[in-house]
């Protein structure tokens, strides 16, 4: 797996692993006992995931979230860990065609699933239209929430295409036009603490209209 990583990331990873050992040594004995003893000690489970078209077989502690499986076991660090409790949307990925918070999903419950992350949106080196639109409209500042925003936006357009209503849809029995208010509501699960919202909405509006690729 490490050969897939660029050298800088590999060495940083080794440093983190070393630091992790040091932390464990310093941890208090009761904390260690919590995870290593007792009748409910976790064994690993085999989990097959198809991520961005590539098949993987992993042996995972059942406590592993999909987010940690992607980042720590498959070295796909484009998906970000923000709040780790389903409130910020930085970890948004697309599973079997639907966007979810990967931080609240146990990987073991997704055996056999098809996953698309931010790394899987570009094709043959060409940015996905949504990625290009975020660049063109400057739909970011620090960029930490951006992978989640873009995965969410891609799924948002598919949901709208399927006729899904939203909280701001006046008549839920109709398929609403994708107004700016609809875009904002449908993206409310993705927080941007830099507040690049105006440009994010502009980028999505642009792609929805097919204005550019």
């Amino acid at each position: 797996m490490e050969r897939l990583l660029p050298p800088t990331l590999t060495s940083r990873r080794r440093f983190l692993e070393t630091a992790g050992v040091a932390t464990l040594v310093l941890a208090s004995p009761p904390a260690l006992a919590d995870t290593t003893s007792g009748t409910a000690q976790a064994s690993t489970e085999n989990v097959r995931l198809t991520v961005n078209g590539r098949q993987h077989a992993l042996d995972l502690d059942p406590r592993t979230t999909l987010l940690d499986a992607l980042r720590e076991h498959l070295a796909l660090t484009g998906t970000k860990k923000g709040c780790d409790q389903g409130q910020c949307g930085a970890c948004t990925i697309i599973v079997n065609g639907q966007r979810i918070n990967s931080c609240l999903a146990l990987a073991v419950m997704h055996d056999g699933d098809e996953i698309t992350t931010i790394e899987g949106l570009a094709e043959d080196g060409d940015l996905h239209p949504m990625q290009a639109a975020f660049v063109q409209h400057d739909g970011l500042q620090c960029g930490y929430c951006t992978p989640g925003q873009i995965c969410s936006a891609v799924a948002l357009l598919a949901e709208h295409e399927a006729g899904w209503p939203s909280h701001v849809t006046v008549d839920v029995a109709t398929a609403p036009a994708l107004t700016d208010a609809e875009i904002a509501e449908r993206l409310s699960g993705n927080i941007c603490r830099c507040a690049a919202y105006a440009n994010i909405v502009a980028a999505i509006r642009d792609v929805a209209k097919g204005g550019r690729t």
Partner: peptide
Amino acid sequence: VRRRYPLLSQAILAGASTQLRNK
């Protein structure tokens, strides 16, 4: 649900985010 029980669609859509509602 949207045609016969719009109250239920409205209430569900008022809660959480799409990512959470998908799960």
